[in-house]
Design a protein around this nucleic acid. Structure first.
Lengths: 257, 257
DNA sequence: ACGTATTTGTTCGTATGTATC
DNA sequence: GGATACATACGAACAAATACG
């Protein structure tokens, strides 16, 4: 008994008749979760689309708004939807394909996806190198490196935080050059490094630090991809180590041999 | 029974007398964090080593256990240590470098790191392809694919869970072949695919499903790297899509152009 | 298979110093 | 100065996972 037939609110698509079974051993919110996910998977709801309001969903399924919220919470936890305070609930966008090649520049890569790149300087300074930075750069621990920390955005959406390390001996004026040019590539050119290419990329993932989470506008529970690039100049000498942190749910790194 | 050793356990190195300054403008937990990190950096504590218990550290530094915990939490957040309930706190192991090339085979890659690879079949079957699998394989949604799910280990430590999808029309006897050979590469050879190479790899990260977490022996709060490989045969035709999930804290994917 | 000791995880409560308006 | 919020530090108790005989 007690199967509740809810009349479809729209005849066309998406809001097909969903029968929730009570006392069937599956909690209502789980059934709602599955129903919504099925709707998304069947492409009745496209990436970026806004779901009906919680109120509307509660009406449609004939349940309390709390029950809908539990279902949405489960979907958000799994990264299927994204809930924004005051705006609504949205089907999660497809991740941005970020193709990594021998010559990869952030702004080019973003523009390739028809999005508008923007880069902002967060922090700049001169520090003694930790061994994790010194080694790939071919320096001794404690030698001076220049750090530029940048936040990269696509269409205003934060994509990556990158810590760029340069050997201070090679490019002493890097900070000024970056301030003048607003781009790593052009700043390096100004410092006499006409071109550089990627020697290797090491990828791992972890949960974000508090600062990274804030800058990326990402909950602390959502992982970040960490890509460590070693870039070399045309003579094959290391010129930059960059450590990029990206919201894992927003990007997909693409490597093609 | 309450034998309390406050003195340095070793005269040589590591547990040297550390003077914490109160009211010095630096919080106690930060000083403890730095002291422990210095000890690890100086290799008084090697990767994998267990740190003293929180209780012991609290005694040693003359602070409350909460204060020690805050320091350990900061170290864990930065990936310096790994805290395991009921077991202790450990210096973080170095991640296993997993180099991805045009021809990458799990067992070869593991052996390169002087570790003993092992592969175990978890699941095998024949299914209609979802679009995410069908598309890269050049099939239509619903066409039959063979799924082999394997768990790869190095020195008995679970490294990766991989779902391998093959077009059933091309290699109908793949499951039997795998059971006979115990290796994807040799099974494909038996099915007439002499060789195959990697066309592309897409990398992202997420929190693990319950099953993945269990198989990888990983807490659900720790992210997994997800690498989707598309492999093609010598004629350039797609022969396999594999979706690999790896404990992010245990591996580092290395790409060299 | 079970109980016990060990170790980390969580939640109370309390007190104090610091920064801000 | 006063009010307030926040981070720091301590204490006690209990919960949960693990190790071990």
């Amino acid at each position: 008994m007690a199967t509740i037939e809810v009349e479809p609110t729209e005849p066309g698509e998406g809001a097909g008749p969903v029968a929730l079974t009570r006392r069937g051993g599956v909690a209502l919110w789980r059934q709602i979760e599955q129903a919504l996910e099925a709707e998304i998977a069947s492409e009745g709801l496209a990436p970026g689309d806004r779901l009906p309001t919680e109120h509307a969903l509660a009406e449609r399924f004939g349940v309390n708004r709390h029950t809908v919220r539990q279902a949405l919470g489960a979907l958000e936890e799994r990264g299927v939807v994204r809930v924004e305070q005051g705006r609504g609930t949205f089907v999660h966008d497809d991740p941005l394909p970020y193709t990594v090649r021998k010559r990869t520049r952030f702004s080019e890569t973003i523009r390739l996806q028809n999005r508008e790149p923007h880069s902002r300087l967060i922090l700049a300074g001169n520090f003694p190198a930790e061994s994790a930075i010194a080694r790939p750069l071919g320096l001794r621990r404690g030698e001076s490196v220049i750090l530029l920390e940048t936040l990269g955005e696509a269409d205003g959406r934060p994509i990556t935080i990158a810590s760029h390390y340069f050997p201070a001996a090679r490019v002493p004026d890097m900070i000024a050059a970056y301030r003048a040019e607003g781009s790593i590539t052009r700043a390096l050119a100004r410092c006499g490094i006409a071109d550089y290419t990627r020697k290797s990329t090491k990828v791992t993932a972890r949960l974000p630090s508090a600062e990274d989470a804030r800058a990326l506008r990402l909950p602390r529970s959502r992982p970040v991809l960490v890509a460590e690039n070693l870039n070399i100049d045309l003579d094959g000498r290391p010129i930059e180590v960059s450590i990029n942190r990206m919201a894992a749910e927003r990007v997909q790194l693409v490597f093609e041999p």
